[in-house]
Amino acid sequence: MRVWLAMKCFFNVLLHGEFANRCELLLKDAPLAKNQASAAAPCSPAVVSASRSDAVTLLATLQREARFVDIVNESLDGYSDAQIGAAARDVLRDCGKVLARVFALRPMLEQEEGATVQVPAHYETECYRLTGDLSREPPFAGKLMHAGWQATKCDLPTWTGSGKGALVVAPAEVQLG
């Protein structure tokens, strides 16, 4: 039972920053649990089921459909720009297709970059990052430097596997015969 709890902690610490912070406070009084958790390998058969972080699911999707993980992990030393470009062109195109399908990204603001835009009096700080002369009171008018991005949906695949595969971004491919 405790092993399972530890496993849960392990994955949650690894995948959820907020949980990790809370855990850190707890761990000052519970060094034993920490040891157990780190002892359990990700492919431990003791794991019955564990949910998977959406981050891993997204990464697995980008790898499966666009080879994203392969390309960012590959050393560029020894390749010409043309060689890198040839591979990157396909990877970028396919990454774009995944992002479009999963997030349907749209600029935060519709105006052209460089245009003058209005920032309302009660603006959300998540939506605008202001630079320059911040001494005045809102509303503001300013030059749009970057139009920003927002997801209009978040349709990630659902993972139905067991705990064993929760951290698998891409399975090993083995050719038989």
């Binding site: 590959e74 040839a86 062109r89």
Partner: peptide
């Protein structure tokens, strides 16, 4: 139009032919 066939292994760039 450049047609690329990516390398199969995890060495993507090295295995890519165009």
């Amino acid at each position: 139009h450049r047609v690329a066939v990516l390398g199969r292994g995890s060495k993507l760039i090295g295995g890519t032919v165009t």
